[in-house]
Design a protein around this nucleic acid. Structure first.
Lengths: 341, 341
DNA sequence: TTGTATGCGTTATCAG
DNA sequence: CTGATAACGCATACAA
């Protein structure tokens, strides 16, 4: 059971050379005659030798592996991001190892440690939950600690520190513009729905508040328009239905799941969408088009961000100590559908 | 960069014992005095020593890691299954490493090889795509090859072979019953929508055909009711709209995405759901409740199957060569919503 | 109870 | 161009 059996010594013996030569052949060294290379390759081809990655890793201290940490892979945004990342990493000859951390601090630290212990060459944190709310530096100390060992990349979040790199989308701007355009269309009471205090959620919230203030709303009024909900369709709907004095003609949600809860709320209230109420979601996921009416959503360009992240990882890993900017941001795009006018 | 630096020799030196003793402490051996254990633990706690997993793996030939292969993690069913599997595996002290194989043979073989090369203790294949269509044994040869190295578990698929274990849900029965109940409610023209020829899709198809025949439909007629579509909401809708002589009052789909495409089709046709047409999806995913009307769906008990799979893996890994059945199956449950009467 | 010595499969250094 | 040999860090059989 679990017999790799054939090792470099076997190949060496079978092809009448030393292990050093076999190793050279495997690693494509120039310093080996075409004749012996062929001899060795023939044997390898015949018996199907694969180097033992542990032994390799032991010596080289690298596994050509990057760790990817997500709060939960059972989330459309995370799973699609992981899919993009994996696809890109493979192209560069890196495998990936996945960790589900959950949202609590203990899980995050533990899983970070787990990934680190696998001697990953780099660590990718997916989701703004890893950025804390952007203020508490204790909450992100484990990230800085990890960055002492390998370069850390955060997708859709930002943490300051040496060897930490961030890729974010311009959430603040996107929500500001979405809200502003609603206001231009004459909407009077716009609310913002979110389920989190993460870095990203806060940026969206700021965009909303700035838009509200730009049309003369008082700070308090803008704050009151922010409603915290659970990330669950029916519970969003029910929570809104339970708010008896809720009067709104526009909703911006921090993800599509919540937006669909809002749609269900509006339908339950007998409102016409988008005439009576406009709704905008976030992430432009499959959920947005599964709904009826289909939900206008802000696309945060996950694929682009992921590709870009992998590119930057390779720059550091291959190119050595090249200096690259610690943070890049990409603009979002509003995908208009049936829940806006 | 990437300095683990502190190894077992350091700890041994710092606590004035031999590396053997440190190793014993790390592995919780009985044969070490409380005094020295404490001494060593103190040092470890102070400097934060973590054993090098490569060195461990080199000697023991196990990494306490299981490989999970999915065609694509960017799929609700796969990602939720992976989440369940990972949660369970962690409880048993196993980490997991993920591979995205795609749906073509080359990717499947390649990624299987990749995972195997990481010295996983077991391999889990998620999705019936890995079972081929159940007939062509060439298409599953790489699975049998993998099973020579480690126990292989297939979620929602079946491949015969030594050291290969399967967990499936009773798709045939579930679809048979769903179709039968539609027929009992007086539906005359029921069609079955699927995007695949996988083991699981075929079982569902068989359930549909059996139900049709049970009410006296000719074999040909039953066959004609099977429509192959793409796994994409709008393309399903458009394909159905393009079929000018399509007349149906009942649709069963092999997943929720397709079912929602069917809903969109019915709505575009101006049909009333469920009065004019009933629709049943599969997987009972978030998509099913995001739609309006919300889609009746068959729950295939992913969580249960995943838990069960991990339990069986542990029986083999911990318990040695215990014989367990090569295939278990769990029943499905119909979750009635607004697209059925 | 503790320490010593060896093997695990590579890669890399250094002679030849 | 090729071969012998020393790391790499740990677990463990064997000694003490």
């Amino acid at each position: 059971m679990n017999k790799d059996a054939v090792n470099i010594y076997d190949i060496a013996r079978m092809s009448g050379v030393s292990i050093a030569t076999v190793s050279r052949v495997m690693n494509g060294s120039e310093k080996v005659s075409e004749k012996t290379r062929k001899k060795v390759m023939d044997v390898i081809g015949k018996v199907g030798y694969t180097p033992n990655v542990f032994a390799q890793g032991l010596g080289l201290n690298t596994m050509h592996t990057v760790g990817i940490l997500v709060p939960t892979i059972a989330d459309q945004y995370m799973s699609s991001a992981v899919a993009y990342l994996e696809t890109e990493l493979i192209k560069h000859g890196y495998d990936c190892i996945l960790g589900n951390s959950g949202f609590d601090m203990e899980g995050k630290q533990k899983k970070t440690e787990m990934l680190l212990s696998k001697h990953i060459d780099s660590l990718i944190l997916v989701g703004s939950t890893y950025a804390g709310d952007g203020s508490d530096t204790n909450a992100t100390e484990y990230i800085r600690a990890a960055a002492k060992r390998v370069p850390v990349f955060i997708i859709n979040g930002n943490v300051n520190g040496e060897n930490i790199y961030a890729s974010v989308c311009e959430d603040e701007k996107a929500v500001y513009e979405a809200a502003t355009s609603m206001l231009r269309r004459g909407r009077k009471n716009i609310v913002f729905l979110t389920d989190s205090h993460s870095y990203s959620a806060n940026k969206k919230k700021n965009g909303y508040e700035r838009a509200m203030k730009s049309v003369g709303k008082a700070a308090k009024e803008a704050k009151d328009g922010i409603i915290y909900v659970e990330n669950h369709i029916h519970r969003v709907r029910d929570q809104l239905l339970a708010m008896e004095n809720l009067k709104c003609d526009g909703i911006i949600a921090s993800n599509d799941m919540i937006a669909i809860g809002a749609v269900k709320y509006a339908l339950a209230k007998g409102m016409d969408i988008p005439e009576d109420i406009e709704i905008i979601g976030y992430n432009n996921s499959t959920l947005a088009i599964s709904c009826a009416p289909e939900v206008t959503s802000i696309d945060n360009h996950t694929e682009e961000i992921c590709k870009d992240t992998v590119d930057r990882i390779m720059k550091i890993l291959d190119g050595g100590e090249e200096k690259l900017s610690h943070k890049i941001s990409v603009p979002c795009t509003l995908i208009a559908r049936e829940t806006t006018m």
